[in-house]
Design a protein around this nucleic acid. Sequence first.
DNA 1: AGCGGAACCTGTCGGC
DNA 2: TGCCGACAGGTTCCGC
Length: 266
Amino acid sequence: MPELPEVESIKRMLNERIIGKPITEVEISLPKIVRHGDLHRMIGGSFIQVERRGKYLVFRTDSDLTMYSHLRMSGTFIWKDDIDEIPGHIRASISFGDEKLLYRDIRTFGGLWLYENNQVPWKSLGVDQFDEKFTPSFLKKLLHKHKRPIKAVLLDQAIIAGIGNIYASEILFAAGVHPNCRANELNMKEIVKICEKTISILKASIDSGGTTFRDFKLSDGRDGEFKGFLKVYGKAGESCSVCNSSIQRIVQSQRSTFLCPECQPE
DNA sequence: AGCGGAACCTGTCGGC
DNA sequence: TGCCGACAGGTTCCGC
C-alpha cells in the first residue's frame, strides 16, 4: 500500500491522535514484526512528534527512545476509535488509556524498531524530494553517477528517499522520459522536468490523501482519492490521455513499469 | 562498485 | 464452481 503520500497521510493522522498521551500498554501478536528493541519499554512515556524520513515513520518520545516503522507492501496504522469493526491481521497495538493504535500488516513485510539515542534502522537514505537541496543541479550530480535505467535509480531509496513504483512511472510519463534511459545519459532539460514533476506529482497526491490502487484506506477508513489522477500506472492497453497511443507495460528489475511509447520515446 | 535475482508473506484476480 | 498461476504499492541480502 504505502507510497510516500500514504505514509504522509498516516503521519498526519498520528500527529492528531497520539501526541502527549501516556502509553499504558503494548501488545505484540506477531513477535517477528518487532525488528529491534522491546516496545514495552515505551510504557509510561508518551510520543511528542511523528516525523517521516523517506517511507519510514519516526515516532519521537519524551525519553531517548525512538520508535520507527516501515509499512513495506501492506502495513498500516489504524486508530481504533475511527473504525466500527477491528479487521484481521493486527500485528501489534499500543494503548493510551481507553484509546488504542493498531498496527495492521497482511503480508508482514513491514516492521517496528525501537532504538535509543540516535540509532536508526536504515542503512542509508537519500535526499527527500521536499528537501530544499532537491534541485535540478543537485539531481544532475546524483543521476550522473549511475548508469542504471532512470526508473531503477528513482526507486533506489539510498539515492532519493520516497519515490515508489507507482510514482516512478507517473513521474517519467509526465517528464516525457523513457524509463529505460540510462540515468547518466539524461540531459539537463530532462533532469529539470524530472525534478519538477517529482515534486508536483507527490505534492498533488499528498493533497488528495494518497493513492487507492488496490486496497489502501486512510486510517479513518475513507479511500485515498489519487487513483483517479494516475495517467499510466496499471493502464496497459488503455489509451494515453495525451496522444491516444496504447500504454505499455514492461518489467524492469522484476517490477512493472508503465509508459506511453509516443510521449516517452526511447 | 554496481547490478540482477531471490527471498520475505498473504491475498486477489483472471483464465481455463 | 474451483483450481492454479501470475501479480501486488518495498527492501535486503547474496553472488557475479
